[in-house]
C-alpha cells in the first residue's frame, strides 16, 4: 500500500467514526423536536441531555480530525473543495455552532421559555448540519468539484446526488440516534419512554430504507463514476449495509435495542466505506486522484505517526468514556 493511500484510509476511518458517533448525536435533534410540549417531552429531552451530554464534544472532534488530516495530507484538493463548496460548508458550520451553543445553554437555562428557545436552536440545527454535510459528500462523489476549485458555487451542491445525499444523511443520523436512545432508555429503566422511542425509530428506519432504495436510480443516472463503483467494487458493502439495516429493524421490533444498535452502526458504517471504495482511486471524483493530491512525503509520514499515536492515546480513554456512559451508575439521572 502506498503512503498516500494509508493516509487517505486514516482520514476515512475518522469520517466513518464521525458519521456513526457524530451522526447519532445530530440525529437526537429529530427526537427532541418531535418530543412534544414541555411536560410531555421532558423525559425524552432529559434522556437526550443525559445520553449525548458526556460524549458530544469528543464525538465532534472527529470532524476536526478529518478536516486537519485532509488539509495536511491533500492540501490542494482541500483548497479546491473548500472554494467550490463554501456555501454548504458555511451552512453546516452555522448548524454546528448553533447546536453546540444551544445544547449547552439549554441545560442551564433558568426558565422554561429560555430553555425552549435554546432547545429549538439545538434541535433544529442538529438537522441542518448533517444535511449540508451530506450535500458536500454528494458534490464530491458526483464529480462536481473541479481540481482548480473554480466550480459553480450553487449547482455544485444543488443537484440530484447532493440533495439526495443530504436527505439520506439526515435520515441515517435520526435512525442511528433512535436506536442509541432506545437502548439508553431501556437500560435506565424508563420503559414507557423506551417504547415510545422504539416506535418512532421503527418509522424512521422504514423511511430511511425507502429513501436509500428510492434514490439509487436517480443517483446512478446523475453520478456515473460513483454508480459504477457502487455496483462493482463496493457492491458487497452496499449489500452489507442493506442487510444491516433490515436486521436492525427486526431486532428493534423484537425489543432488543442494544443489539439493534450494533447492526445500525454496521449499516451506516458500511455505506460510508462503500462510498469510499466506490470512488477509489479518486479523491475528488473524475478530477483528482488520491496519489495526485498527496502532499509532501515527509508530512504524510508524520501524519501517519500522529494517527498511530492517536490510536494509542485517544482510543483507550474514548473506550473508557463510552463504557462509563453505558454503566449502570451512569444510567440513572
Amino acid at each position: 500500500m502506498t503512503i498516500e493511500l494509508a493516509v487517505a484510509m486514516a482520514m476515512f476511518v475518522g469520517l466513518v467514526a464521525y458519521a456513526v458517533f457524530g451522526g447519532a448525536d445530530f440525529g437526537s435533534g429529530f427526537y427532541d423536536i418531535t418530543a412534544g410540549g414541555a411536560a410531555r417531552g421532558a423525559e425524552l429531552r432529559t434522556q437526550i441531555d443525559h445520553s449525548i451530554g458526556p460524549v458530544w464534544e469528543a464525538n465532534h472532534v472527529w470532524l476536526i480530525y478529518v478536516l486537519v488530516t485532509w488539509w495536511t495530507g491533500f492540501p490542494s484538493a482541500f483548497a479546491a473543495a473548500m472554494s467550490t463548496l463554501i456555501l454548504p460548508l458555511l451552512f453546516a458550520l452555522l448548524g454546528i455552532v448553533l447546536r453546540g451553543a444551544g445544547f449547552a445553554f439549554r441545560k442551564y437555562s433558568p426558565t422554561l421559555s429560555q430553555a425552549r428557545v435554546h432547545g429549538a436552536l439545538f434541535a433544529g440545527s442538529s438537522l441542518i448540519a448533517p444535511f449540508f454535510l451530506g450535500t458536500v459528500a454528494g458534490a464530491i462523489a458526483s464529480g462536481r468539484v473541479p481540481a482548480d476549485g473554480q466550480g459553480d458555487l450553487w449547482s455544485s451542491w444543488l443537484n440530484t446526488t447532493s440533495l439526495l445525499a443530504g436527505v439520506i444523511t439526515v435520515a441515517c443520523c435520526a435512525f442511528l440516534a433512535g436506536t442509541f436512545l432506545t437502548a439508553d432508555a431501556t437500560r435506565a429503566g424508563h420503559d414507557e419512554l423506551a417504547a415510545r422511542l422504539r416506535r418512532h425509530t421503527l418509522m424512521v428506519g422504514a423511511v430511511t430504507g425507502a429513501l436509500v432504495l428510492g434514490s439509487l436510480v436517480p443517483i446512478t443516472q446523475d453520478a456515473p463514476t460513483l454508480a459504477q463503483g457502487l455496483t462493482g467494487r463496493a457492491a458487497p458493502l452496499i449489500a452489507t449495509s442493506i442487510l444491516g439495516g433490515i436486521v436492525a429493524l427486526v431486532l428493534l421490533a423484537r425489543n432488543r435495542p442494544s443489539a439493534a444498535r450494533v447492526s445500525a452502526v454496521v449499516a451506516v458504517a458500511s455505506v460510508i466505506v462503500g462510498w469510499g471504495a466506490a470512488q477509489y482511486p479518486w479523491l475528488l471524483v473524475d478530477e483528482v486522484t488520491i496519489s495526485d493530491a498527496a502532499g509532501a512525503p515527509a508530512t504524510l509520514r508524520a501524519l501517519l505517526l500522529v494517527a498511530a499515536i492517536a490510536g494509542i492515546i485517544v482510543v483507550p480513554p474514548l473506550v473508557y468514556l463510552f463504557r462509563l456512559t453505558q454503566s449502570t451508575e451512569w444510567a440513572q439521572h
Partner: peptide, 9 residues
Amino acid sequence: GDVLGLPFA
C-alpha cells in the same frame, strides 16, 4: 497545508 499541518493534527 502540508508544511503547517502537523501541529494542527
